[in-house]
Amino acid sequence: MATTTTAPPAPTAQTRARRRGGWLSAPGRGRDRLLAVATPLILLAIWEALARSGAIDVRFFPPPSSILEQMARLMSNGELWPHLFASLRRLFIGFWVGLVPALVIGVVMGLSRPVRAALGPLISGTYPIPKSALLPLILLIFGLGETSKVVMVAIGVFYPVVLNTVAGVAQIAPMYYDVSKNFGASRWQVFKTVAVPGAMPSIMTGIELGAGLGLILIAIAEMVGAKSGLGYMIWNAWQLYSVETMYVGLLVIAIIGYVMSLLLAEVSRLLMPWRADR
């Protein structure tokens, strides 16, 4: 008995000792994080050095320091903010406009065979169409106003979410439906207590993909049919040959994408506490 109770702590102590070791010699979270930060910083430093020494063409690759300078200028003179907020607003509205129907249709398709048979081919048939190729049509239908931009984001969010939701509901072990039926759950209760939580990991994957696609599409849509937004800012900078501003636009979009993925990871953790320490 004594051996069985004292045995478990031993390996943990070992692992901890290994983690506490030097960051180069031992694998560990601290070293991973350091590498993740160091690699881009080193690359930026190389870029800066190459640009300053004239080894690369500064017309295409302005030194990072000048890009940051430009970014600071655009922030202080207020030019950046309207573009940023216009894009964020379209992203936010489009996200919900795409997400809600995708979830509802996805879960219903996952639960109901006839609905799946009716809508499945339609959705998987239109899915491979490059969403950017829809832009002219969307502009034609919804005009040059806000709606067309929101619709583009919504389309981007809709497909990955609906497909992942259907797959998520379909992969729930049939036993869980048997359990809910045996314990007297109504259709709505099955939806709430089995289908949605069971499919949640897959749904969140779909949302992450959809949010990324939405970001791509908003940039493209703003380049063509808008007078505001980060996409417009980048496109306009190209026409004015302000290369630094283009890079600022790209940087801001990258930051939005990163913050979005952090946010969604946090939402996942809140929605799925049962996977918290996986």
């Binding site: 036993m175 869980y176 359990v179 207590t193 089995v194 799925m272």
Partner: peptide, 11 residues
């Protein structure tokens, strides 16, 4: 039920 039948998403 046979095997794991409790819901993983519930406490």
């Amino acid at each position: 039920f046979q095997g794991d039948s409790i819901f993983p998403w519930m406490t």
